[in-house]
C-alpha cells in the first residue's frame, strides 16, 4: 500500500530534523557554559570598579559634580542600546527584547535613537523605521572587551557632546537556564551605588580624586556594556538550548506516533492481502 511508504518517508524526515535539533541543543549548551564562565570571570573586576566608584562618589567635595558622565541634565534625546542575538531559533527571546525596547521607546516623550547590537534587533527596528544611530552585528559568540569598545565609545562621545542626554541598555538578563528576562538599565548618566559608610576607606588618591574618577567612569561604562553583551549571549544560548530540546522532544514524540501508525498500516495491508488470498483460494476451490 502507498500509505506505508508515505509514512516511512515522513518518519525519516522527522528523524533527520531531530538529529539537527539535537546537535544544535548540544552546541548551545556548550556555548552557554562558556558564556557563563566568561561572565563569572569578569565578576571580580566589575564588583571592584563598582565599589571604587561608590567610594569616590561618596567623597565630600566637588569631585563628582565635575565629571560630565555623572551629571544629569534636561532630557531632549534618549538613546537605547538594543542588544539582541544575531540569530534566531531561540524561542521567544528576540521578540521579548524587541518588545521591551519598543515599549521603552513609546514611553518616552522625547525622540529616541537606537544603537543596535545584533542582527535580529536591527532587522526588527529597520522594519519599523526607527532612528538608528549605529549598528554592530556579528560580534560572534566570544567577543572580547576590545570588540565591544566601539559601542561604549559611541555612547560616551555622544553623551559628552550633548547629542544624547540619557542612555539605556536593553538586553536579555540571564537568570537561569530556563529563565531569561529582558531588562532595561540606565547607564548614562552614571548613578553610583550607595555604600555603607562603614566600608569607607580613607584613600590617598594619585594623582587626585577627580583624575581617578575621570579615568574610572569610561571604564565603568565599557564594563557594563561588555557585561550586558556577555549576558545576552548566555541568554541566547540557553534559550536556544531549551527551544532545541523542546523541538527534539516533539520530534521524538512524532516519530513514536508515526511508527505506531506505520505498524498499524503495515499490519492492515498484510491482513487484507491474506484475506484476498484466502478469499481467492476459496473461490477457486
Amino acid at each position: 500500500m502507498a500509505n506505508t511508504r508515505l509514512i516511512r518517508r515522513r518518519i525519516r524526515g522527522v528523524q533527520a530534523t531531530s538529529k539537527i535539533t539535537r546537535a544544535m541543543e548540544m552546541i548551545a549548551t556548550l556555548k552557554m557554559r562558556r558564556a557563563q564562565e566568561r561572565g563569572l570571570a569578569g565578576r571580580p573586576y566589575s564588583d571592584k570598579i563598582t565599589q571604587v566608584l561608590a567610594d569616590l562618589a561618596a567623597l565630600p567635595g566637588e569631585a563628582k559634580a565635575l565629571h560630565p558622565l555623572l551629571q544629569s541634565r534636561p532630557v531632549a534625546k534618549v538613546a537605547v542600546v538594543h542588544i539582541t542575538p544575531d540569530r534566531g531559533l531561540c524561542g521567544g527571546l528576540n521578540a521579548n527584547i524587541n518588545r521591551k525596547t519598543v515599549s521603552l521607546i513609546l514611553e518616552q516623550s522625547v525622540p529616541v535613537t537606537l544603537i543596535n547590537v545584533g542582527r535580529k534587533g536591527l532587522e526588527f527596528m529597520r522594519r519599523y523605521g526607527r532612528d538608528i544611530r549605529a549598528e554592530f552585528s556579528r560580534l560572534g559568540d566570544r567577543p572580547s572587551l576590545l570588540d565591544t569598545l566601539p559601542i561604549s565609545r559611541i555612547i560616551i562621545d555622544d553623551y559628552t557632546n550633548g547629542v544624547i542626554d540619557l542612555v539605556y541598555l536593553v538586553y536579555a538578563q540571564f537568570i537561569s537556564t530556563m529563565v531569561q528576562r529582558p531588562v532595561m538599565r540606565q547607564i548614562l548618566p552614571v548613578e553610583p551605588a550607595e555604600i555603607p559608610t562603614a566600608e569607607n576607606v580613607d584613600y590617598i588618591y594619585e594623582p587626585g580624586p577627580a583624575a581617578v574618577l575621570g579615568e574610572l567612569l569610561p571604564r565603568f561604562v565599557e564594563m557594563q556594556v561588555y557585561h550586558a553583551i556577555l549576558e545576552s549571549i548566555a541568554s541566547e544560548q540557553s534559550a536556544r538550548m531549551v527551544a532545541m530540546r523542546n523541538a527534539t522532544d516533539s520530534a521524538n514524540e512524532l516519530i513514536e506516533e508515526l511508527t505506531l501508525m506505520y505498524n498499524k498500516a503495515r499490519q492492515e495491508s498484510i491482513t487484507t492481502e491474506l484475506l484476498d488470498i484466502t478469499g481467492g483460494a476459496a473461490a477457486l476451490a
Binding site: 584613600y203 590617598i204 588618591y205 594623582p207 581617578v212
Partner: peptide, 15 residues
C-alpha cells in the same frame, strides 16, 4: 612614578 608597595602600605588609589 614607579610605586613599590610592601605589606601594610597606607590605603591608596592610583592610576
Amino acid at each position: 612614578g614607579q610605586l613599590g608597595l610592601l605589606p601594610h602600605h597606607a590605603p591608596l588609589m592610583t592610576m
